[in-house]
Design a protein around this nucleic acid. Structure first.
Lengths: 145, 145
DNA sequence: ATAGTCCTTCCACCTACTGGAAGGTCAAGG
DNA sequence: CCTTGACCTTCCAGTAGGTGGAAGGACTAT
């Protein structure tokens, strides 16, 4: 199977599939002309990856999940542990964003939004006294969503 | 003021402050020895940036907010518009994550998590029929959280 | 033969920084 | 005067997970 075909069937862009090969998630064989030749198992793997990614699992988690996927002796506990810790991260992110949303909503509501320059949003951003408000920690750059 | 001092007072790492100079958010002058020399206004700007970033505004939004910050004639409507669209993005992200959380939670609950290999989580990831479930769109790489 | 589509590799770019190396500067102590 | 240590400088590379595009080979249909 050519990459275009696999791309269509898995729903993943060809670029992404090549990238996944680059980082070792799939190992398609090659034809004489240099074209990648995907087996049906590769297609399954890629669909698996697409679903796992859409559920927000990191590439590293996907790697582990793939190895469990291919392990007929795996214990469901191992799978569950990964999903659980991912779920915890998601829930924590939700909480952070909810706090953020509340703060922003409050500011937006209090801003009259007309031609005049005075603005509670600006006042908040300008105020240097950090104790006056809930401090929301800076986003960690490692958290890519 | 030296960068270490400004870093301490603004709460931003020195690296970040240099980066902000790189991308043109602040323009400290230089001493004869090559050291950056920050004015009090720069400190205010950096504190402003730190707060705006902690509220999740993008660097580009911060750039606009900074120009509004320095514009005594600005209209609060301009500020409000930026905050509102940011709030909308945050709220949409929350909704996406909540759907994700629900899906993950369901899978985790249904997985017994013992030594046996059968696992509803794996079943979900393996199933290639996409119609059977709510399809959660792939994360856009432009959304960095 | 040629046009159009597919495939290949490679390099750069995105966000918003962070880590580290190599080296210059400054203030205090011996 | 010299050294030590804390600062400061620039520059390069790496993070996650791809995406965009260029240059060029391969295949198919006319």
């Amino acid at each position: 199977m050519n990459i275009g075909n696999v791309s269509e069937q898995s729903g993943l862009p060809a670029k992404t599939i090549r990238y996944y090969e680059d980082i070792g998630l799939v190992q398609p064989s090659r034809r004489e002309n240099g074209y990648r030749d995907f087996a049906v198992q590769d297609l399954h793997k890629l669909a698996f990856l697409g679903r796992a990614r859409s559920l927000g699992f990191s590439i590293d988690e996907c790697r582990t999940l793939l190895s469990l996927y291919e392990d007929r002796e795996r214990s469901s506990a191992d799978v569950k542990a990964i999903a659980q810790s991912h779920l915890a991260r998601v829930d924590q992110k939700i909480e952070e964003l909810q706090a953020l949303s509340a703060t922003l909503r409050d500011l937006v509501v209090r801003c009259h939004g007309d031609d005049r320059p005075d603005c509670p949003i600006m006042d908040d951003l300008t105020r240097s006294d950090l104790r006056r408000r809930e401090i929301i920690p800076l986003e960690q750059p490692s958290e890519h969503w």
